[in-house]
Design a protein around this nucleic acid. Structure first.
Lengths: 114, 114
DNA sequence: TTCCGTAGTTCAGAAATTCGGAACTGTTGA
DNA sequence: TCAACAGTTCCGAATTTCTGAACTACGGAA
């Protein structure tokens, strides 16, 4: 298992963020993590929508979100805790996340990220 | 040559818009069309960046932008005139286009769409 | 220690998408 | 009718996405 990669704020790329959020399934995952404000484990995220996401697919989705800089993942024992990087992304690209979540009809919560 | 398809405002899908604008080449094309405010022909759009876009690829890019609802294309004789649908998109998804263009470092012009 | 269960990752092949040159369509003008 | 032009469509190659199966990593029990 290779270590998790997280881009620095200054390395965030708009194209990666838009691509990551151009998939409704990933948006649902991200919105859930951002809304929770605290850790979201993969298992808990697997059945948000109308189907159960296969875990290999889910793992890929998490990787896309992580490498776009939208979430941060930390291994805690056997599980992975994910939390959003909304604040960092927002500092770099003001208003972007909010506009996107609003467009999807998912108004973001106010800064409840731990 | 099949007729051009343009989604109605109420049929605009955020995922299609984000996908369309997750490619820097398409963003450059869209920003040019939106910035021009008037018609942009494919030929004029082919070499905005560091390379000349092959015309079959350009045609695909235009189709993606058009079917996402970001631009409107009209055939005028031998050429196609494209103009942005920023205002319509903005009515449906307020702030989205502006946030995206700003993230790409392409601050949008003020409503100069004809 | 060894074994087991859980959480998530990686592998690999099938399916889908993207890219771009070549051929094509449709229009204008000579 | 013919040629030139603007853009589209076709199609094969390359790339990407999807997901079941195999795997790694950790923690707890014996």
């Amino acid at each position: 298992m290779r270590p998790l990669f997280h881009p620095a704020v200054e390395d965030l790329k708009p194209e990666a963020i838009l691509y990551a959020l151009s998939d409704p399934e990933r948006v649902a995952i991200f919105a859930q993590i951002a809304g929770l404000g605290s850790s979201g484990t993969c298992t808990a995220l697997a059945n948000l929508g109308s189907r159960v996401i296969p875990k290999s697919s889910l793992s890929q989705h998490m990787k896309v979100l992580r490498e776009a800089g939208l979430i941060r993942g930390e291994r805690h024992g056997v599980e992975m805790r994910n939390h959003s990087r909304c604040q960092e992304v927002d500092r770099r690209f003001p208003g972007l996340i909010q506009a996107i979540l609003s467009a999807y009809g998912r108004p973001p919560e106010q800064s409840n990220a731990g």
